[in-house]
Design a protein around this nucleic acid. Structure first.
Lengths: 220, 220
DNA sequence: TTCACTAAAAATTTCGAGATTTTTGTATAT
DNA sequence: ATATACAAAAATCTCGAAATTTTTAGTGAA
């Protein structure tokens, strides 16, 4: 296994887990020491991450951690509603029983975790597995849409959306409503009601749609 | 000016102008000789192009020119309909007179070129300026949507769409219909009729939607 | 033939040093 | 004080060689 894969994954995880200051420059020469490799290798990893949209690149001025703001989160949410709505509707039409089975399974897994979180005192340990299960559910929604392009765009948007989530959002205060939301999305999708499914996906994400252009971090 | 910018632009133009075999590997060591620089510089340029989606990158197996197929073109068209429809509707709501003026100007420019092409015998010389004018018109449509994210996604999709166009599509046999289409999109947008605008954008792009992979696109 | 294994070739990736560009800091003039 | 110009520092980008990995070609066994 290449060392670069490790560095790519390490940087990726840190970027999504908000282990960098938002808007900060990512200087290859500095990160080099921290990760024990050459600056070029860091540079490579950063290019790959910028393909995923997790870092931004500008000619002659290097890489940066994307800014975080309510406005950006709202924009990404808007794109999620658009892409997940479209992808799910197409999955309803093309997915057949196999897709319904996969979706039901993904929901079962997610709802199991969400109920455990709902009952737990310390939610910190669930963070990673919940994120994975939630991602799996939403990816399964669009998995039978028949468009690689749509799925790729969604993966990009979803990753950046995740990156924008505030720490406050990770305390699972919303989990009770989320259990309902996911249940309703599943039911709507299985019923074949396209308009209702779009609506439920929108409602699920709606709390992120109320963005001003500037967030809590007042940057420069 | 850096040499890399030249190489980036050169490769970009060649990729969009279909100067490579689709699906072919892009080997830095080979392109190096052709462009008179080191393999690393080529590699850099290819990473930047993969951010734009104009080349694909896979770990440990380098870069490739995206495959070309009716199915991929249909998928990209579908995304254009979705993103341009949404962006234009938002522009109608938020753009105001300034946006209407910019859109009218962009359309005037485009329609001037299209009428010249329609009248001309040799259309080859118009290719580049038409592509630029058409891009400008469609970017102006969504320019007042208020979402950087939407515009970035659209730029990515639009570039790949352009890359997918067959040479046959460049003989401007469609130009007569296109003049009408653009006129109708403009009129619908200026009238403020959101549903009609979406419809006209869809109709304009519909001839690319007949791929084998994807069925009818999902309607709101 | 077909499959598995190995060796050689070719391609990708890493590396650090040097070249270029941007950024920062300081002095000077308005 | 604000702005401009210049020099120093720091960062980005380029390069070619070396290390690693993948791909190709060839050999032998079932």
């Amino acid at each position: 296994m290449t060392q670069d894969i490790d560095i790519y994954d390490a940087l990726r995880h840190r970027l999504i887990a908000n282990g960098f200051v938002h808007g900060a420059k990512l200087k290859a020469e500095h990160l080099r020491a921290e990760y024990g490799c050459s600056a070029s290798t860091i540079r490579e990893a950063l290019f790959r991450l910028s393909i995923q949209g997790l870092v931004t690149f500008q000619d002659q001025r290097g890489f940066r951690v994307p800014e975080r703001s309510k406005g950006i989160l709202a924009e990404l949410t808007h794109m999620r509603v658009l892409l997940e709505g479209e992808g799910t509707v197409l999955s309803i039409r093309n997915g057949g029983v196999a897709w319904e089975a996969r979706l039901t399974a993904a929901h079962h897994q997610l709802s199991h975790i969400e109920r455990r979180i709902h009952a737990a005192d310390d939610t910190g340990a669930f963070e990673d597995i919940w994120f994975d299960a939630e991602r799996e559910f939403h990816e399964t929604l669009i998995s039978a849409c028949g468009s690689v392009t749509l799925k790729d765009l969604h993966a990009n948007v979803y990753g950046r959306f995740r990156q924008q989530l505030m720490v406050a959002d990770r305390s699972f205060g919303f989990i009770s409503k989320n259990i309902e939301h996911h249940q309703e999305i599943l039911a709507a999708a299985l019923s074949g009601d396209e308009a209702l499914t779009r609506q439920k996906i929108h409602d699920h994400l709606a709390r992120h749609l109320t963005g001003e252009t500037l967030g809590e971090d007042a940057k420069l």
